[in-house]
Amino acid sequence: MNIQQEIEKLTLSYFKTINSEITEENGLYEISIPEKYQNYFRSSQISLTFDEKVASEQNCELINPGNKVLFQIITNCNNQGPIILKQTKTHTDNIVIRYHFFVDLSGIHHSSKLFSIDIDLKTLQPSNVTEELEPGDFSLNDKLIPENITKSYDVALEELKQQSEEMKNQFIEKANSSFKSDFQLFCSRYDSEMRELDDSINEKEENSEYRFGTVKKIESLEKEKSTLVENIQNKHQILINYELIAAETILL
């Protein structure tokens, strides 16, 4: 993925979608913000560029990671949760729901990916719609089987888990490896200290006072180690989000 190209594509198609007027001259874009969005962007006009050189010469927004306007665009797009209608050219009466999920794995590392899962609403089986789709012009209420929506979502989730299994396993493997390395790094010093203390007891077996004191020390080190392990586990805790972000209702 060329990040800068993707940013440029998203930014310009976003402004087109919200009906902004866009003019461009030598890499400097003048965007007029429609009234509906002026409050959101706190402006009626935005000058922006995707070129660092232009940004250094002009007083404008440089749209790259970290830029506020880009952030506003992404946030606005992410908060839509759209459901739209699509159909094939030769459709009959079959309905397939295409669920779009954003699978987000986080912990000490981070990984995320989009998945689209098609479920036949009648058979409640995974489907794979490959035909070309056009905007749908049918009435959803006539075609839907409301009682099957939750069931279809559950099937989609099961399918999603299967499809994302490899991603999940790789992530957990990576997380385990980091966890193991942290665990070894921080716990080994406790282990070696405890071992040394333990050995010293054997060497001075006859001295019971020493023995008692050393056992106490070992116990206290064990307690410290268990707190440490808990902390390391907390830090490395993995969170898996199977987030439903959009859906398409497809008439097949």
Binding site: L10, T17, C77, P82, I84, I245, E248
Partner: peptide, 28 residues
């Protein structure tokens, strides 16, 4: 989304591509 589907609510199609693209970008 599930509730909206049950109620037959739909949206204009313009934001679907943008939504998917923006999540993809966010992921990156």
């Amino acid at each position: 989304i599930k509730e909206k589907l049950r109620n037959g609510q739909i949206h204009s199609s313009e934001f679907l591509d943008l939504t998917l693209k923006s999540y993809e970008l966010l992921s990156f």
